[in-house]
Design a protein around this nucleic acid. Structure first.
Lengths: 339, 339
DNA sequence: AGGCTTGCTGCAATCGTTTTCCGCCCCGGA
DNA sequence: TCCGGGGCGGAAAACGATTGCAGCAAGCCT
């Protein structure tokens, strides 16, 4: 901000050339300099509280030692754990994380993506992908280092780290069937995301596998993984004739919307209707009732994605691999046998 | 990542010198170049999808157009709203935000602070300050642009944006007294933070103002604004003789700990004991019971802090001003008259 | 004793911008 | 016709680091 010391000043103080100072301070090259000199330089650096100028270094080395993270919205409790997972492993590798909130706005997303690239980030972790996001596939094809979290992109080999949507939903549906439910509804997430679609498919498949006839009227679509969308869909679901005895929500935010409508309609959960969410996001266990949901290891997803990115930064032509982390069903108090 | 086009390439394509290209693309200097030339350059830039290299620019201009944000932990729901407030106003001014989590670890904080400075951030917003944090006062004295949020530093003129701790607690205590409580306890926050101390003081003051005798045994200290600390303090509070009929928690996380202990002890809230939190953090309204708490406008605090930083960046010798944003008491279902 | 390696250090170019200082061209006024 | 000046655009020097290359001394070998 004011006058941070430069390498030149360190060199002068140590009585050596700036080149030598550079080498002495860099672990990779410090073997090239006399140990005694090295100590002198390091002492000088310490006294001056020298911090290398990251921009100058980045300019020369063409690596910024930073990575961007694109998420919809930080205030959605789903994302902080993912971000922390990312930050923790990235930070320990010396990288800085730049977070950008797209608010599910495509234009904003493009702008932010460009901003990140202008900042010369070494790679980008994307949590906002839609099934067909040319912006990402194009960038990836041109060599931008990308890793997807949570959601994937159709027919793309961009590496991704996700939870097991299919298995998670399967467990949830199975659980409801085991309780005796047959009229099981699904409030589906946006179908332009792989998560929204995979969960819907898993719901249908699970019903079929159990021999429970599918009823199209029990599936409601939403335009976003949000509480208001969840509430809207739940209202139209309940208004339409055949009332379900259980609902599988595409995620916890949507489930929150379900609960809102339940109390509007004076339906008690789980006595009148059962509900299962997805994600096990923070605080969802403290609701009334504590929500049964599918737990996805978000911190690990973030951490794994960061590791994957790091790997690919170190070795650019590593084969693109995607990882699916196991989901687990966590039963609390929002499900019960049908009355 | 691969080969982003440089200004030189844009210039070549437009058939002008790189200097001219630079001027044409920069709104501040574009008046120096012929409108026709400018259009040519801009067209070339668009075709090449040119993005100026932020590191090169920053190196030359000594401004990174980025600011750092120091918070304890992103997964604490208190902080995402603050961060969004910061990011939104900063982004609209063209700045990028770098977030760092200190985990309340002093050493880590120092490291991260240095990392941010190495990245040449133009300023830093600090949410982790303790009452005596030499690291910040020293840096501020040396010219580092700082703004404190949420917490302040004793005897320092570093600009700060905070909620009204005193008034908030006063309202909470007043409310309990009005309900008829006299045995009102306080689970105090860490006394090495201004928030922890201000809230404790306000609690004592409010009791005194109302003529309710203070009982030292009704005040419990914690070592952190966390659920486990809150629970620990609540247990020792309840184990010690005179049981309170109401608790004012120093913040919502601590209140969460109180609720945990209430259910351990089979105390129902608010029938057996009333509870008021502080912050009105997300989801605290969906607990059982919905928590009465003091609302602090976190998004605005963040936004205001960012604006303040921006102002001081634009005009370095602006007088240091601190802002206190009003708190409001939001009554829900965790308080009732003593039984 | 001369040549060669080895070990250390310095020189200078470079990364992609911005910015100061000039120079050129053209036009108008005298 | 000449001069002055405005309007544009170019040359070059930074910013602070890294790095290939060269230099130089000392030590070893033959």
């Amino acid at each position: 901000m004011t006058n941070s010391p430069t390498l030149k000043e360190v060199a002068q103080r140590a009585g050596v050339h700036v080149t030598t100072a550079s080498r002495a301070l860099n672990p990779a090259t410090s073997s090239l300099v006399n140990p005694a000199t090295m100590r002198r330089v390091q002492a000088a650096a310490r006294e001056l509280r020298y911090q290398p100028n990251a921009m100058a270094r980045g300019l020369k080395t063409a690596r910024s030692m930073s990575v961007g993270v694109l998420i919809p919205d930080l205030t959605n409790p789903l994302f902080p754990p993912i971000v922390r997972g990312i930050e923790d492993v990235l930070a320990s590798a010396g990288y800085t994380t730049l977070i950008a909130n797209t608010d599910n706005d495509g234009e904003r997303q493009t702008t932010l993506f460009d901003t990140l690239r202008a900042r010369q980030v070494d790679g980008i972790i994307v949590a906002t992908a839609h099934r067909e996001d040319r912006i990402f596939t194009d960038a990836y094809a041109e060599g931008t280092k990308l890793v997807l979290v949570n959601r994937r992109i159709d027919q793309s080999d961009i590496p991704a780290v996700t939870g097991d949507d299919h298995d998670g939903i399967a467990m949830a549906v199975r659980h409801l069937i085991d309780l005796g439910h047959t009229k099981i509804a699904h409030i589906a997430g946006p179908q332009n995301t792989t998560t929204g679609r995979a969960r819907l498919r898993a719901y249908r498949q699970s019903l079929e596998d159990a021999g429970v006839p599918a009823e199209p009227s029990l599936v409601m679509m939403t335009n976003g993984f949000t509480e208001v969308e969840g509430a809207r869909a739940t209202r139209t679901l309940l208004d339409a004739g055949r009332r379900p005895t259980a609902i599988v929500a595409a995620n916890d935010m949507i489930a929150l919307g379900c609960l809102d409508v339940f109390s509007e309609r004076r339906l008690s959960c789980p006595q009148d209707i059962s509900l299962v969410g997805f994600n096990d996001m923070p605080f969802i266990d403290r609701l009334t009732p504590p929500l049964s949901t599918v737990r996805v290891p978000h911190y690990q997803i973030g951490a794994e994605a960061a590791r994957m990115l790091l790997d690919r930064l170190g070795n650019p032509d590593l084969p693109a691999k995607s990882i699916t982390l196991p989901a687990t069903l966590v039963l609390r108090e929002s499900t019960a046998p049908p009355s």
